[in-house]
């Protein structure tokens, strides 16, 4: 007799734990061909708010960690992902070879961003030659809690928007791709076993149109990445809501996830702090 398999329940990832949506709702996820894959949690407004609280709580520790430590942890995420390449390739579905390439590119992207943790300040900071007896130094600092609406590309796209936000010390609440959220929750399992402190990345699955506006209008969110929003009207409403507390907004734009990402996704969610230090004896 063949063994009956144990199926995975896909839940949310909030504050380092895997809760179900408080609303008890779920929605069916299907493959590109329309076959049923699994039920995913359909997060509510309350889940989004819980996620923001978790992200805010994690911010002092994560932004205060040394860049070296953050780089180590992101590299560790890459290592954990590397070890589960097969699982992710299978979950991505489609052509086996193409899926494997996507997973490899995702691991490489994490490695690339991991190295930025202790270099971004060197290329985005400056010692400014002011006309006076001051040592004047500008350094990049993380913006705070960033809400990220992840693109449809379920793994490479997701990691390409999350890694640049957290490597500099921000914490985030991610709305996973609505049609393909499963890889995001499996990625959460990787994050949870990579020494990434709970709350640094929080992942919600569910309706983008339902969740994004709550996050865009949340007064304890400092930044908003709308990359995954295809609906121009939804993007507009989110950006307008974001104006209420002057969130830093990254507008949706077509992306080639295989191209060199540049530093723009990091710098959009960085503040520049300039300190005038006295010189004297």
């Amino acid at each position: 007799m063949s063994r009956l398999s144990v199926r995975k329940t896909y839940k949310l990832y909030i504050g380092g734990a895997f809760p179900r949506s408080e609303s008890g709702r779920s929605y069916p996820v299907t493959s590109a061909k329309g076959d049923f894959l699994a039920n995913a949690s359909r997060a509510s407004r309350k889940d989004a708010r819980d996620a923001v609280v978790a992200a805010r709580k994690a911010f002092p520790g994560w932004s205060g960690a040394t860049p070296y430590n953050r780089g180590q942890i992101l590299y560790r995420v890459a290592e954990m992902l590397e070890g589960r390449r097969g699982q992710f390739a299978e979950e991505l579905g489609g052509g086996k070879r193409a899926a494997a390439e996507r997973v490899d590119a995702t691991v490489d992207r994490l490695v690339w961003y991991a190295g930025w943790s202790d270099k971004i300040a060197a290329v985005h900071g400056a010692a400014n030659p002011v006309a006076g007896p001051y040592f004047n130094l500008s350094s990049p600092e993380p913006t705070g809690v960033v809400a990220v609406v992840a693109p449809a590309d379920p793994l490479l796209g997701l990691v390409s928007v999350v890694a640049p936000v957290i490597v500099t010390g921000n914490t985030c609440v991610v709305v996973a791709s609505e049609p393909s959220p499963l890889a995001a929750i499996t990625l959460a399992e990787v994050l949870a076993t990579s020494d990434l402190p709970g709350g640094v990345v929080n992942i919600l699955t569910g309706s983008q149109a339902e969740l994004a506006p709550w996050l865009a209008g949340h007064m304890d969110v400092n930044g908003l990445d709308l990359t995954g929003v295809d609906d121009a009207d939804l993007a507009l409403r989110c950006e307008q809501a974001a104006a209420e507390n002057l969130k830093r907004v990254l507008r949706p734009a077509p992306q080639d996830w295989t191209a060199d990402p540049g530093t723009g996704r990091m710098t959009r969610f960085l503040e520049t702090k300039t300190v005038w230090h006295p010189i004297g004896i």
Binding site: P129, V130, A131, S138, E271, T272, T274, V275, W276
Partner: peptide
């Protein structure tokens, strides 16, 4: 805060980013 002054205040310079 975007600008921090130590043992001084309200100093400005074109070379120093402000915001």
């Amino acid at each position: 805060a975007g600008v921090v002054w130590a043992n001084t205040f309200n100093k400005f310079d074109p070379a120093s980013p402000f915001g």
